[in-house]
């Protein structure tokens, strides 16, 4: 896991209050790791940790469904 993926994982664990380590390509929703009500908190944490503003039009849950997908979205945002 890259440093950036580790940082994303730490944010996921912060909002879910869990300590497991899902694999980077594992669906966070399907595995039950992340639920609908933790997702808005994760988005807020990502905005703060990576100093970005995620517009509502980008808030597609699929973009945040795995550590890899979150990393990919952050890459697109530069």
């Amino acid at each position: 896991m890259t440093d950036r993926q580790q940082k994303i994982l730490s944010l996921i664990n912060k909002v879910t209050k869990k300590s497991e380590t899902p694999s980077p390509d594992e669906s966070l929703f399907e595995s039950g790791y992340l639920d609908s009500f933790a997702l808005p908190d994760l988005v807020a944490e990502l905005e703060e940790a990576f100093s970005i503003r995620i517009p509502d039009s980008d808030l597609n849950p699929r973009k945040f469904d795995s550590i890899e997908r979150i990393e990919s979205y952050l890459d697109q945002r530069g």
Binding site: F29, S36, F37, L39, P40, D56, N60, P61
Partner: peptide, 13 residues
């Protein structure tokens, strides 16, 4: 209903 999208958008908007 796409529940995740509803919750995510409502939580912000």
């Amino acid at each position: 209903m796409n529940g995740r999208t509803v919750i995510l958008q409502a939580s912000r908007k």
